[in-house]
Design a protein around this nucleic acid. Sequence first.
DNA 1: CAGTGGTCTAGACCACGAA
DNA 2: TCGTGGTCTAGACCACTGT
Lengths: 241, 241
Amino acid sequence: MTTRQHHIADDLRRSIESGGFAVGERLPSETRLAEHYKVSVPTLREAMSVLKAEGLVEGIHGRGNFVREPHRIPYAHGHKMADSTLQVSVDVRRVKASGVLPSLLRVPAQSSLTEYEYVSYLQRSALSMARVYVPRSVAKLAIPKPSLPRAGRSPWGDDVQDLLAAAGIHVATTVERLVSRLPSTEEAQLLRSTTPVLVVQRTSSDAAGRIVAGAFVVLAGDRTEVIFTNHTHVEAPRGTR
Amino acid sequence: MTTRQHHIADDLRRSIESGGFAVGERLPSETRLAEHYKVSVPTLREAMSVLKAEGLVEGIHGRGNFVREPHRIPYAHGHKMADSTLQVSVDVRRVKASGVLPSLLRVPAQSSLTEYEYVSYLQRSALSMARVYVPRSVAKLAIPKPSLPRAGRSPWGDDVQDLLAAAGIHVATTVERLVSRLPSTEEAQLLRSTTPVLVVQRTSSDAAGRIVAGAFVVLAGDRTEVIFTNHTHVEAPRGTR
DNA sequence: CAGTGGTCTAGACCACGAA
DNA sequence: TCGTGGTCTAGACCACTGT
């Protein structure tokens, strides 16, 4: 009942987790593994893509497939990042609202926005791309010159919230909507991976309910996890909750 | 620079979104589409799987590929579900902690747990599977007899939280950790889809920091979205936040 | 039964990385 | 230059659906 690709993926996963292959070690080439399991190369590649999506294996074009520690960088908007091994670049520009942006930000089409584009890198491959938008009707934020990748900055565009706060605009509510999809060609090139991506659509409102910022974040699904923390406000326990 | 599969996916997406194909309509068979685009059938299927992961297309084995309204059922733990078209089954049993459960719930291996298994169905195919665990050292919840699929119940196991509250145990903090991966064979059969799944690992603690429940939720990535709302507690605006 | 998508085969060619 | 993974071809066979 189980397919060959999953049978192979399960077998390789067991080999890796039981220590048959060390972290950082190169797996046998796909051709060799296909011979070993007596399947065709495309079938073996399907099995490999299961392990890649789990973060257990990293494929490097031209070099091989490598066993990976399945550590994932946590995406948690508004929380300070502990990880400072990420290089983050920023690019800022003025754009006109189009596509889904007018409905995301509840502004008229073609209205002026400030766009912040963050790209984070882990070694040579990108880990995330975040585009944060602030309507210029909300705040006419300054547009500094773009900065090269550097460490210690939030990869998710959290500093836009700080800029807004400095301008006297305080975010009261943030709603995040998350889906999974396959990467576009451009995303696959940047992330150096064709595993599924996590896409976060984020809208921030002030206490009056006005949308003051919106964002799209694309995360490499094999190297990131999304963390949400919810503190239930517990009053005195009553009969109904 | 763009691959054939993405070129075809982009073209089909345009056709669908511009109204060339109506919602609910069957697309031409993969063989016919492959002829039309002058590519092999496997390549066309790659393009189709991009649209399936986006929720724009639903493939039904033996019938064809159908255009879908990309509506997604929102997963939002603790919020009342508006959608009552979902049929939800529950199964309850006692299990021993093994695998990752001891570390998830911070209990010794082999300790007793109550397991609640929720499966939600939309038509014939499953949409989600949730397994909720409560250590019996926290609460010795009754084990009622399993119930057949019925509507109006939370698919994510929210009623376990109500059961705990009724037993005097109040959840103060819930942390959700979300990743994306490819489905196992069993999951693919239940969900009738091989598109990526969203996996939520959830832990709930009381005010004392004791873990009172944990859960794993598997969501069909093409038909669900995860929604998280965060209310920033805004006091009087000060210099630093 | 015929037609459909799901899985698999056995190759080909290209892009990339290291020597 | 050579070995690697990434993309693609042109089929095959099976499982599922409706008639």
